[in-house]
Design a protein around this nucleic acid. Structure first.
Length: 104
DNA sequence: CGAGTGACCGCAA
DNA sequence: ATTGCGGCCACTC
């Protein structure tokens, strides 16, 4: 990708590339950005100055919505459902099947 | 520059 | 089975 782009830019880019109706995990995004252990940073980056990004498509490896993010989990669940992503008990339904992959 | 934070992941007891 | 802890990297203040 862009050598000038910081890790944060890579993450933002990847998040922006996630198609509606699909979700991705922090660990996967971090790995795609080149840092398989930077899962926390992905969440942190989205929280620092990218609340405009479709970060609501980011879920943990359990397929569950982020815990205690700014706004409320129900909001994220509603946004996901608005994109054809059904959630149950704040957990993405069929998460494994909805997990977005760049090679796909 | 240094320290603290973050929406995580994986393993161990 | 559940709970607790540490660790990895980057960003902000």
């Amino acid at each position: 990708m862009q050598p000038d782009a910081s890790f944060r830019d890579q993450v933002e880019h990847l998040i922006a590339l996630v198609p509606a109706g699909q979700v991705t995990t922090y660990g996967d995004l971090a790995a795609l950005a080149g840092h398989p252990y930077a899962a926390r940073i992905v969440g942190g980056i989205a929280h620092y100055g990218n609340e405009k990004l479709p970060w609501h498509r980011l879920v943990n490896r359990f397929g569950g919505l982020a815990s205690g993010y700014y706004g409320g989990r129900e909001v994220q669940a509603a946004m996901l459902e608005a994109e054809a992503v059904t959630c149950t008990n704040f957990i993405v339904d069929n998460f494994q099947e909805r997990r977005w992959r760049p090679n796909l």
